[in-house]
Write a protein that binds this DNA or RNA. Structure first.
Lengths: 347, 347
DNA sequence: CAGATTGATGGAAGCGCTCTCACGCCGACA
DNA sequence: TGTCGGCGTGAGAGCGCTTCCATCAATCTG
C-alpha cells in the first residue's frame, strides 16, 4: 500500500487577465492593444510600449481558444504515428523524424502534438483530427489498412506524409526515398561481390517502404538469374530480424548474402548468423537499410543504404507549412530523395 | 537532388457546419441542439434523435476553440518531459509511463499532448503551459534546475509529478517510490550475501531519485561499517553505466558488489565487468533498479528493485484528473509506493 | 379543482479575441 | 490655401459555442 499525505491547497491566482484589462491599463482601445501584441503593425511607438508595459505588469497572455476562434488557426501541428507505442520508442527512425520536424516547427513557434494511435484508437484519432484541434498533420509509419491519406484528404486537412502512402497517394503530399532503387543497388552490390544466393529480410507487408525494398531486391536477383524465393518478413525490429534469419537459414543453407530492409533488423540478422557459425561478411555478406547510427556502431560495421531521414522529415514539415500558409498551395506535391550506398565491413 | 512532382489540389470541403445549421436542420434551437450533443440532459427523445440525425447528415463536429472558450476546458493534458529527446526514446521508463498515462486519459476521452522540452526550449514550454492550451500537466524526469514544480504551482495549473521534485515539493502533487529504502534494501541484500566492498553506480546528480538511491546505499554501507567512497555517476543510460564501472574498477580492484541506480545502466555495468574478466555474480554481485523488462532479459538475469511504474503513472494521472475535476481538491497530495526486491541470478 | 412541481424549450448573454471600417489627424503637394 | 494620401486609432461586429433564465405545457399534490 502506498503512503498518502495531504497538504492544504495552493491559492491559485484568480481570473487570468484579459485583453480588455491590458487595453484599459495601457490607455488604448482593445483593437490597438491587439495590434500591438500581434507584431505591432500600424501602432505608434508610444502605444506599443504602453501595451508592452501593461502586458508585463498584468502578466497577460492571450487566450488561445479565443484567438483561434477568430483566426481559425491553432498554431499547433500533429505528428501522427499509427503504431503501437513500443516500436515508436525503440526505432531511431522516429527519433530522427521527431527531431527534424520539431526543429522546423519550433522555428515558426508552432507546437507539436504527438498522436500515437494504436489500431483500436484509430477512430478516436480521426475524430480528433476532424475537430480541427490542429492546423495540419505529418504522418509517419502509416500502414495499408489505416487509409490515412484518404481520410485526411477527405477532411481537407493540410497534411504531409513521410513515406508514400499505399492509397490516396495522388491526393496528399509526401516525401520518400526511392526504396526500390536503393534495395536494388544493395542487391547489385552483393552480386558484384560474387554472391550468388541472396536472401531478403523484408519489412512488414503492409508498408510501402517494405514492399518497394522487396521489389528492388527481386528485380536485381531476377535480372541476374538468381533465386528469388528466399524472402522472410520481419517487423523492423531486432527480434523480427532474428526470426526471419532463422527461417531463411532453415529454408536454404547456402545463403551467402542477405539484403535486410532495416538496420535494426540487420542487428538481429547478424546476431543469428554468428550464433549459427556463419562469419559476416566471409560466409554471408549483409546489407542493411537506413544508416541512422546503429549501422556504424555494431560489429562488424554494417554496409547499408542511407536514406536522409532528417532532410526528408524537414521537407515534409516545410511542405505542410506551405499548405497551411496558403490554402491554395498544390496539395499533392511529392518529393523523392535518392538513397546512397554506404559501404562498410559487412560486405 | 530529390525529384519533385505536382498535382492539382484537392477540393477541400467548404466551411465546416456549425451548431446553428444542425439546430435548424433538426428543427430545434441552438440551445437544445447543444444540450442534445452534450449528454442529452433535459432533452426529449424526439429532439435527441432529430439532432443526432442532423449531426450525421451534416457531418458536424463541434469547434473545440469555441467550446473551450466558454467551458474553460480544453480536454487535453500535457505530458511534460524536460529531457533531450534521445534519452526519452531509449529508456523503457518513459514508454511505461506514457502508456499508463495514456490509458487513464483515453478512458476519459482526454487528449495527451507530449511536451518534450530541451533546456533551450524551456521558456517556450513554460509559456505554452501558461497560455492554458491544456487543462493540466503530468511531469516526468524533472531536474533540479528546471524548478518546474514552483513554476507550475505559481501558474496555478493542475499538475502531478512522477518522482518527487527537488523544490516546491510541498506545493504540488506527486507520486514516488521510496527510493532510499529500495536502495538500502538492495545494499543490505549484498551485505547479507557476504559482499564487503560495495560500490554504487549513481544516476544524474540533479534528480531526486538518483540522490535518494545514493543515500540509501550510503546509509547501508555506513551502518555495516563498509567503505562509502565507491561512487560513480552515470546518466541512466547503458553507456553511462559502462563509464562509471570503468571508473570504479580503476578506483578499487576489490569491488565485489555493485548497487546500480537503474537497470539500463546495469546492462552497461555487467558488460564492462565481464570485459574486465569479472564474473557476475561470482566475482561481483550486481543489483539494478526499475525492473521494467530489461532486467529479466539480460544474462545473467538481474536482481533488481522493482518500482511499480505503471501504477505510479496511473496514480499521477488520476491525481491530476481529481484536480481538474474539482478545482478545490487538495493540491499537494503525495503518494509513495513501496519498492520490492526481486532476486534473480546476478546476486 | 386551484396551486405547485417538473421537464423541455428557446431567447439571449457572453466567453476573449481579431479585424474591418470609418474617422480624424498630419504633412505633402499643387 | 485647399486637397490628398497615409497613418494611427477606436467602435463594433462577430467567430461558434454553452448556459442562465424565463416560458410554457404537462403532470402531480392536497
Amino acid at each position: 500500500m502506498p503512503r498518502v499525505t495531504h497538504q492544504p491547497p495552493d491559492q491559485g491566482p484568480g481570473q487570468a487577465p484579459t485583453l480588455d484589462e491590458v487595453a484599459r491599463l495601457a490607455g488604448v482601445s482593445r483593437a490597438t492593444a491587439s495590434r500591438a501584441i500581434n507584431g505591432g503593425n500600424r501602432v505608434s511607438q508610444s502605444a506599443q510600449t504602453a501595451v508592452a508595459e501593461a502586458v508585463r505588469t498584468l502578466g497577460y497572455s492571450p487566450n488561445p481558444a479565443a484567438r483561434s476562434l477568430v483566426t481559425r488557426r491553432t498554431d499547433s501541428v500533429a505528428l501522427v504515428v499509427p503504431e503501437p507505442d513500443e516500436r515508436v520508442f525503440s526505432d531511431p527512425f522516429f527519433v530522427h523524424t521527431l527531431r527534424a520536424v520539431n526543429r522546423v516547427l519550433a522555428a515558426r513557434d508552432l507546437q507539436l502534438v504527438l498522436l500515437l494511435a494504436r489500431p483500436e484508437d484509430e477512430s478516436r484519432m480521426l475524430r480528433y483530427l476532424g475537430e480541427r484541434h490542429i492546423d495540419g498533420a505529418i504522418v509517419v509509419s502509416h500502414h495499408q489498412n489505416d487509409r490515412l491519406a484518404e481520410h485526411l484528404a477527405a477532411l481537407g486537412l493540410p497534411c504531409a506524409f513521410v513515406g508514400r502512402p499505399w492509397t490516396g497517394e495522388d491526393r496528399v503530399a509526401y516525401v520518400d526515398t526511392d526504396n526500390e532503387a536503393g534495395s536494388r543497388a544493395a542487391t547489385e552490390l552483393l552480386i558484384s561481390r560474387g554472391r550468388r544466393v541472396i536472401g531478403h529480410v523484408a519489412g512488414p507487408d503492409d508498408m510501402t517502404a517494405a514492399a518497394d525494398r522487396r521489389a528492388g531486391w527481386r528485380s536485381a536477383v531476377t535480372t541476374a538469374g538468381l533465386r528469388d524465393d528466399l524472402v522472410a518478413c520481419g517487423d523492423f525490429t531486432e527480434i523480427g530480424g532474428e526470426e526471419a534469419t532463422r527461417a531463411l537459414l532453415a529454408q536454404c543453407e547456402e545463403i551467402d548474402g542477405l539484403v535486410v530492409a532495416s538496420d535494426l533488423m540487420a542487428v538481429g540478422v547478424v546476431r543469428v548468423l554468428e550464433a549459427a557459425g556463419r562469419r559476416v561478411p566471409d560466409d554471408v555478406a549483409v546489407v542493411g537499410y537506413d544508416d541512422l547510427g546503429v549501422a556504424e556502431r555494431i560489429t562488424p560495421p554494417l554496409t547499408t543504404i542511407r536514406q536522409p531521414i532528417g532532410d526528408m522529415a524537414e521537407q515534409a514539415a516545410r511542405m505542410l507549412l506551405d499548405q497551411i500558409d496558403e490554402r491554395r498551395a498544390p496539395r499533392a506535391v511529392r518529393v523523392v530523395f535518392p538513397p546512397t550506398v554506404v559501404e562498410r565491413a559487412s560486405t
